[in-house]
Amino acid sequence: MKTGEQAVAGAVGSQKPMAISLRNLRVTYGKFEAVKGISLDIPQGEVFGFIGPNGAGKSSTFRVLATLQPKFLGQALVCGLDVLRQPQKVRDIMGFVPDFFGVYEDLTSLEYLHFFAAAYRIPMEKRKSTIDDVLTLTDMSHKAHSPVDGLSRGMKQRLALARVLLHDPKVLLLDEPSSGLDPRARIEMRELLKALREMGKTILISSHILSELSQLCTRIGIIELGKMVAQGSLEDIYRQLQVMRVVHIRVENASPELYERVKQIPGVHEVEQQVDRWAIRLQEHDASIADLHESLVAAKARLTMFQPEAMDMETAFMKLTEGKTV
């Protein structure tokens, strides 16, 4: 498993220009050390998922990158710009959606976007078209004249995304964008983020909904107690952690002999007999799903169901973290 500097060295080795680069980042609040030496490199165009329990240091890291943390140790660069020395320039190329955010209750959606367009110094002649574009992209055009306070949480999240897209930033920092959303709004948000990924934006996203990150992110980092405990692609992390895939099968000719033969198949770690099926725990680095299917047929199993479970990110998360943070 790659941790900290190893993973950073790997990413640097790819020679891609870095959108985000953290070196030995340390953030302290009084005597409490929230971030303890995180190093991270995110190449441009990548979607990086930041996972960790509450209080692990995710939001502190986001605040550093968003230029909202006046004091920290280490180095933080956004597109090569030093967060501490060139915060104004960083704000020009970065969009930040905090975990908790309010909206100005006295404005309509359109006024809200005009407010931030002026704050981002978008020229007057370009403002209307830019705002129309982001409203269309976030599917908020029909709510343009609605008071912001009356929007649903999902709509507010989309409006927040529209806000950070106004100045066409290269880097998006999204802290828990899906928290508190209903399933429909969550799916819509995921589709929107996919569209942004297609547009080539570099996205650093944190979430508690792990399955969501697995569908969206090119790489993930798992953080606990202010330390990065693992980072890399999902496949890498599963492989490194030896997370086993569960495959559910149903056979017509179930017998103790067949059960013994299945247990002997290379890569099979355990076979659990359930009421209507067998659950096979497969070590994927020894045998792939296709290999297992082939071996089962060779063992004369008459399959009526062959159902591999999706990658179990929760297991990875639980294995990597010790639940010391709340």
């Binding site: 968003a66 955010f101 806000r163």
Partner: peptide, 12 residues
């Protein structure tokens, strides 16, 4: 009202 962070992340 939790609107400060959004405001502070702008270039103003």
């Amino acid at each position: 009202r939790e609107t400060m962070e959004a405001l502070l992340s702008t270039p103003m």
